[in-house]
């Protein structure tokens, strides 16, 4: 057999394997986020939301939907992206991937592709769940999907980097807990940054998550905290940064090959 130019069988093997793991842990992977999201709707949508005024003509319950999807997307993408590669490092099964005729680009494509696929499915399931609680309109469905794909891929990539870097389970959960969750809560998942005091509004603009959530919300209701072009630019920049980091890790032996 002649040498491969692109190991499509290899990429497919990893991709399918990762999705099988997803299917095997369907309860944790799918039901858990759906339940927690539903709880947000009960609390913020029904209990508190009924006493909140509309935000820019959108009922509060509907307003938080894009933010909630993003919130889940961030954490699930990171955990999916990191777990797949980390568990292989942890159990030692990584030897097989390292000794296989797959390039690093192919490995990243397969792992991140699988993680992002799960995230997109999850995002759509949460969207469907939300629809049961509140009326939702999607003004720009193509952009909505574009933001969904880009964000899922970026954060899965971030998760993959984390999985490569992590030397223990604690490190694996530190980034989502200490960085991503606070940035998301402060990034306008549950409010428009207009609602903040002036100083905090300025500070919020330094939070990259604001741009991601704002752009996603714009694709639903046509209203945004920041210009949608800025949102798109920020999303692409973040994706680019993650790609660059992965490429850099690869050049330095990617913490796998000593």
């Amino acid at each position: 057999m002649s040498a491969l130019a692109f190991n499509r069988y290899g990429v497919w093997a990893i991709y399918r394997f990762e999705l099988q793991r997803f299917a095997r842990t369907l309860v944790q992977s799918l039901i858990t986020p759906v339940i927690s999201t539903s709880l947000y709707f009960v609390v913020f949508g029904a209990a508190i939301g009924s006493r909140m005024s509309d935000v820019g003509g959108v009922s509060y319950g509907a307003f938080i939907v894009p933010g909630l999807i993003m919130l889940t997307l961030f954490s699930e993408s990171i955990s999916n992206g990191s777990f797949g590669i980390y568990i292989q490092k942890f159990t030692g099964t990584i030897f097989e991937v390292l000794s296989a005729p797959v390039s690093f680009v192919e490995v990243v494509t397969a792992f991140v592709g699988a993680a992002a696929t799960k995230s997109v499915i999850l995002g759509l399931v949460i969207l469907g769940t939300a629809k049961l609680f509140v009326p939702i309109e999607i003004q720009h469905p193509v952009w909505m999907l574009a933001f969904l794909f880009l964000t899922s891929s970026s954060f899965s990539l971030l998760g993959f980097i984390l999985g490569l870097w992590a030397k223990g389970w604690e490190q694996l959960s530190i980034v989502p807990m200490l960085i991503v969750t606070p940035l998301t809560f402060l990034g306008g998942a549950f409010y428009s940054i207009d609602m903040l005091p002036k100083t905090w509004q300025t500070i919020a603009l330094f939070n990259p998550v604001v741009y991601l959530i704002s752009g996603f919300r714009w694709s639903f209701y046509g209203q945004a905290d920041v210009d949608v072009v800025a949102s798109l630019a920020a999303t692409l920049a973040f994706f680019g940064l993650c790609l660059f980091t992965v490429a850099w890790i690869f050049r330095t032996g990617y913490r796998l090959k000593n």
Binding site: G10, T91, E96, V97
Partner: peptide, 26 residues
């Protein structure tokens, strides 16, 4: 390569693991 340690995905079936390995090697 058959490594020293028994490093394999314990939750998978024998056939699934083999199918995975063959695909991985292109």
């Amino acid at each position: 390569l058959v490594p020293q340690e028994l490093a394999t995905n314990m939750f998978e079936t024998v056939l699934t693991e083999m199918t995975y390995s063959r695909g991985l090697f292109g």
